[in-house]
Write a protein that binds this DNA or RNA. Structure first.
Lengths: 144, 144
DNA sequence: ATACATGCAAAACATTTGCATAAGA
DNA sequence: TCTTATGCAAATGTTTTGCATGTAT
């Protein structure tokens, strides 16, 4: 499947930059790629421990940071700690977050590039990235 | 000036909800209202201590949280701690942040309400707020 | 007078780091 | 073999909390 392909690409990138391929790293990357739900470090740690019970939280943090620096995952910054990560779309994109159940969806939003370009023109900034989060209540939570 | 007006409004709101007016609270609110540069808690603390040397950091945190709950200041969430606050525009609005010097400006952006409305329609979410940050390098930092 | 706010220190929390050991290249 | 990664524990930095004391109402 597509996960295998991206896994291979990431492993190739690691090799190319003289980082070592360890079972822990493979497990962490796989977990991030397979997750549909933007997991946090603690969640990745829990899933990895199923197959590698000796894995430490520190290693998960280190690997997540490495992947972030390589541009292979996207950090979704949450106020008050608890960052979460997107291994499927590593480029900046908007999120829609349910404040009741914490579900995150990736809505289709055009207009952002345009917005960014207008901003750069108006302010003189060179814009490198963005972080766009909408908060609300998802359809399911509205009913309950 | 306009700061005095908003200060009075906030104090009235505190009284109305049976919170007490203390010199520390007044000083903290004034600092937040007078700041043009989206200060962090530590910065507010430093400024308040000039006139009230006995003020504690805990009190600044408590007051900032109170003001946030009352909707009188806006929290700008930064990844990795170091939240900053906007006492002048307490409603959600976009920021443009220089990653070199940490300067924050409030750009004019239309389209956000429209974006929000489209999103709600497409996803079924009820959207309550947003957090829109653009990151880049300001004109001054680009030269140096 | 009587709550509530303050200030201090300790706790909580996510994250990072130092270092000895283990393991990939 | 030789360097890098791991895992543990301790350190970090920000924010919160418990509690005795002080203070606004």
């Amino acid at each position: 499947m597509i996960v295998q392909k991206r896994l291979d690409e990431i492993l190739a990138k690691l090799r190319q930059r003289d980082f070592r391929i360890t079972p822990q790293r493979i497990a962490i990357i796989k977990t991030l790629l397979q997750s549909e739900d933007h997991p946090g470090v603690e969640q990745v740690y829990a899933e990895v421990k199923v197959n590698f019970p000796t894995t430490s939280l520190a290693t998960v943090y280190k690997t997540v940071n490495l992947l972030k620096e390589l541009g292979e995952i996207l950090e979704i910054g949450f106020t008050g700690g608890c960052n979460r990560y997107d291994g499927n779309k590593p480029y900046p994109h908007p999120h829609l977050i349910c404040t009741r159940c914490s579900k995150i969806v990736d809505p289709e939003v055009r207009l952002l590039e345009q917005m960014s370009a207008e901003l750069a023109k108006a302010t003189g900034y060179r814009i490198d990235s963005h972080q766009v989060e909408f908060f609300g209540v998802c359809a399911a939570c509205q009913k309950s």
